[in-house]
Design a protein around this nucleic acid. Structure first.
Length: 579
RNA sequence: GGGCUGAUAGCUCAGCCAGGCAGAGCGUCUGGCUCUUAACCAGACGGUCGAGGGUUCAAAUCCCUCUCAGCCCGCCA
């Protein structure tokens, strides 16, 4: 197998093939930004605008074309919150560019032609419920499909056309739940439709150049290396032994040999055949630049794992092999979950949908709007702190609290990208208190308690009341999930209690006072103290008796306002130990 | 071993580009509210800005060295 070396592709003549002479662009775009911004997405947007301008001046790009922001992952398993960086980081840059008057498309490649390299231990159904491998119908089928593209493997849940489609659908749903409109592009579809055919032909036509450049980054590249992996027509695995190339016909000849896949070696079937350029895939290091070319990508964020390997080689290959201008890169740090790395196999995952059962979308956006250069822990036990931080951030921009100049500037710039609309009349119930309100499922009672406690001021518009109360089920879910100090439940029926005679008499007395005067929250609080004193009951013990009676706990929220907010007939009955 | 990125109050984080009094919130403590009770108000406590050195009138900020953590330096993606 030998190719005529041919002339260098246009646009690549000045690009050195040696990595020492090439000098890849640093992907740490934010750190290198020459302008200070309150919001990191502005710094990224500056770089994108500079790229677009340069490309237009060079005649490489039509000024009428929209700017393209891309992200992408393999649909290899459960798409967790950390994976959503690929969606959310690009989203903020896209929104900033839109605000600056650009038309922007946010595309997302699902790299579904990648081969399955190991059997996942955890899967998730389309509703986002994580299940163990053993819980699906034919778990063994996955093991028999090692080495095949995700889109060529049956969906273990039987609901989608393939394994790849299943997890791509989960990614799509997650993005939708986060309120981000992405155009999902199936990599398999790019190959099968022929959209990647020219790029594939180009790489193979310049195979010497491709080899020489990639050899800077990967040791296994030798004279026999062919930058194309055909799919075996016999066994369906992605294989790598190419024995001949026919550029004219757009085919390669191959022999299906064994292939290293992580720790395991996937045996080839030995089949010898011919595959078209649509029946295989480019190796990742070429595929990424090929996607940039075909989709016209201007900006691409990626995790720190790509910063030192894939990015420099991708930058180099785009320029030296394709003669293309690579997109503006941006490295983001990874998240951890509850202090540990996200790990599907260890079960340390949380999906976007699950998070949205605990937090308003705005709060999740707020989390993703923080500086991507910093590794962050998403700690479920302290979500109240995150929400408090968001609430304050909101109060700062609305001028409701004093704050240092820098904090005000940052809030003013970032806030509009985090919320759907800036609504000064909105009301937030403190997250922990919202969790406490979740002690009852009675929504009217929740509202009454929120109003009486001052969390919902007089004159709040109806929509704002409804929005504020929407936090209650979220905070309740959190309290239940973490089983923390805010996990109260209003005792629907009389708990098993035993009080001494003085306490019983005092409770009955308190019932009488409530029945007679219908005291407001402060008056009721006073009445509790007064009653305890009158009957010679220790105040602390009396409060505990109250919490026992209504919550079946030893502690609780401020008792006066709490009881005042409840239906008084119910309170009287309970105090008399009648039910 | 080499490279990249990060480290600021108990916790969550601003400030660093372009040097100018060490900041915010939460938590804690104290006090207030006729009142031990997770909602409210006031105040206080809390710092070797990871360590050391250099430049400078002045360093969290700029430079160098080091420590720790994550990632990359096989293959794959």
């Amino acid at each position: 197998m030998s190719e005529e070396p041919g002339p260098a592709p246009s646009g690549t003549v000045d690009v050195p093939l040696d990595a020492d002479a090439f000098e890849a662009r640093s992907p740490h775009t934010l750190a290198e930004s020459d302008r200070q911004h309150a919001f990191w997405a502005d710094a990224a947007a500056d770089a994108v605008e500079a790229r677009v301008e340069a490309a237009e001046e060079a005649g490489e790009r039509d000024p009428d074309d929209p700017i393209v922001v891309k992200g992408g992952i393999s649909p290899s398993g459960v798409p967790h919150l950390g994976n959503m960086n690929e969606v959310m980081r690009g989203y903020f840059v896209a929104e900033v560019l839109r605000e600056r008057g650009h038309e922007v498309r946010q595309v997302f490649t699902t790299d579904d032609r990648d081969p399955l390299r190991k059997v996942p231990r955890k899967l998730a159904d389309l509703d986002g419920n994580v299940v163990g491998l053993g819980e699906v119908e034919d778990a063994g089928a996955l093991g028999r499909n090692l080495g095949k593209p995700y889109t060529a493997i049956p969906d273990p849940f039987g609901c989608c056309d393939s394994y790849g489609d299943h997890f791509s659908e989960l990614i799509r749903r997650s993005a939708e739940q986060l309120g981000v409109d992405i155009e999902i592009v199936s990599n398999t579809e790019l190959y099968e439709s022929g959209r990647l055919e020219d790029a594939t032909r180009h790489v193979l036509a310049n195979a010497d150049r491709a080899r020489e450049v990639l050899a800077n980054y990967q040791n296994k590249v030798d004279a026999d290396y062919v930058p194309f992996n055909p799919i075996c027509a016999e066994c369906g695995t992605v294989t790598e032994t190419v024995t001949g190339i026919d550029l004219e016909a757009g085919t390669v000849d191959y022999r299906c040999t064994e292939m290293e896949a992580g720790d395991t070696t996937i045996g080839g079937c030995g089949h010898e055949g011919t595959a078209t350029f649509r029946e295989g895939k480019l190796p990742w290091r070429f595929e990424w630049p090929a996607q940039w070319r075909v989709l016209g990508v201007d900006f691409e964020p990626f995790g720190k794992d790509h910063a030192e390997g894939s990015w420099p080689s991708g930058d180099h290959i785009a320029r030296a092999v394709f003669g293309d201008r690579p997109p503006v890169p941006m490295v983001y740090e990874w998240f951890t979950l509850n202090g540990e790395p996200f790990s599907s196999s260890a079960g340390n995952v949380v999906l976007a949908g699950e998070v949205l059962d605990l937090l308003e979308r705005e709060v999740v956006h707020f989390f993703f709007a923080k500086d991507p250069k910093r590794a962050r822990d998403f700690d479920i036990t302290t979500l109240d702190q995150l929400v408090d931080e968001f609430d304050r951030f909101e109060q700062v921009i609305l001028g409701e609290v004093e704050a240092p100049e820098t904090e005000r500037e940052r809030a003013a710039r970032v806030y509009p990208f985090v919320v759907d609309a800036v609504r000064p009349e909105r009301v937030r119930i403190a997250y922990t208190f919202a969790a406490v309100l979740g002690m009852t499922d009675d929504t009217d009672l929740r509202e009454t308690m929120a109003r009486r406690s001052g969390h919902i001021p007089e004159g709040t518009p109806e929509w704002a009341v409804a929005d504020a109360l929407d936090r209650v089920p979220l905070a309740r879910n959190w309290a239940v999930r973490t089983d923390n100090a805010y996990n109260y439940r209003l005792a629907e029926t009389l708990p098993a209690v035993e009080f001494d005679d003085d306490t019983t008499a005092a409770l009955a007395d308190l019932a009488d006072r409530i029945e007679a005067d219908d005291p407001d929250d402060e008056a009721l609080q006073e009445a509790i103290y007064g009653t305890a004193r009158d009957h010679g009951v220790d105040v602390g013990d009396f409060f505990t008796a109250g919490y026992r009676l209504f919550l079946d706990e030893d502690q609780g929220p401020r008792l006066g306002p709490f009881l005042a907010a409840l239906d008084s007939a119910f309170v009287v009955r309970r105090l008399r130990l009648e039910g």
